[in-house]
Amino acid sequence: MYNRFQYISQGRTPEEHLSNCEEVLAAGGKWIQLRMKNFSDEQVEKTAIGFQSLCASFGATLIINDNVDLAKKINADGVHLGLTDMPVIKARLLLGQDKIIGGTANTLEDVIQRIDEGCNYIGLGPFRFTSTKEKLSPILGLEGYQSLIGKLDEEQRKTPIVAIGGIQLEDISSILATGISGIALSGILTNSSNTKEIVERIHTILYEPA
């Protein structure tokens, strides 16, 4: 219940969020997370419905960031929760067993907590500095990922872990070599003048044999 390549929406307006979402989907993206901070509830809900229509057209998965009530209201595919958001157990009760619940993590303790909570996947980061988040957790980098995955292996704990935070194309292969399952991207796609080319290169790295 996760995809190795996830796009986290970005935009200065709801219209930009929708336009950027459509570009990524048209380029081959299959997993979209709607993340709209500092917008009204009405704007977020209207945009989420637009995202849902687009995702249905392209056969893609729609995840709502933070807002469990909205995810339930529009019957989205799932929700992604930060460490200070609604507890995963409560979200699971509200959404049901068939919905996807992802959780943010920054430390080994966070990851173990997320595994114990029953998250379907974990977004681990930040890999490096990113302007997308206002309150940035300590940066992990390749060494942080290697160390954390190694400790999880020692404890025989397995769960899909997706790297997030300031990732560029040239980082992806090295990140995957640490044992990370996939990547979540935002700025590199939002700010690209050729989204299709970027998505094709990402798919090549993730899914084609070296």
Rank of each mutant, 00 (worst) to 15 (best):
D41N: 13
T132W: 06
T159Q: 13
L206A: 05
G59T: 05
E16C: 00
I183W: 04
L185P: 02
I8T: 09
S53H: 11
L18S: 07
G123C: 14
D110N: 07
S9K: 01
S137M: 06
S193Y: 03
G103K: 07
E208Q: 15
S193H: 10
L93S: 14
E170C: 14
S186M: 12
G118M: 06
G78Q: 05
I180A: 05
Y2G: 02
T104R: 05
G150F: 07
G102I: 03
A76P: 10
G82L: 11
L94E: 13
C21M: 11
A91L: 10
D153H: 12
D171G: 10
K90I: 13
I149G: 09
T61F: 11
G165Q: 05
K151F: 00
V111Q: 05
V88T: 14
G11T: 00
S53C: 00
L25Y: 01
D110F: 06
A163N: 06
L108N: 08
I112G: 10
Q33P: 11
A184R: 08
G11D: 04
K158W: 07
S147A: 14
Q43H: 09
A210I: 08
N65D: 13
T132N: 03
V111W: 12
G187C: 06
S173K: 13
V79M: 07
S131Q: 12
Q6F: 05
D85W: 02
L54Y: 03
S192F: 01
I49L: 15
N65T: 13
G166W: 13
T47H: 03
G50L: 06
L81Q: 03
S9M: 02
A177G: 01
L148N: 05
Q6W: 04
L124M: 08
Q168M: 10
T195L: 02
V24W: 03
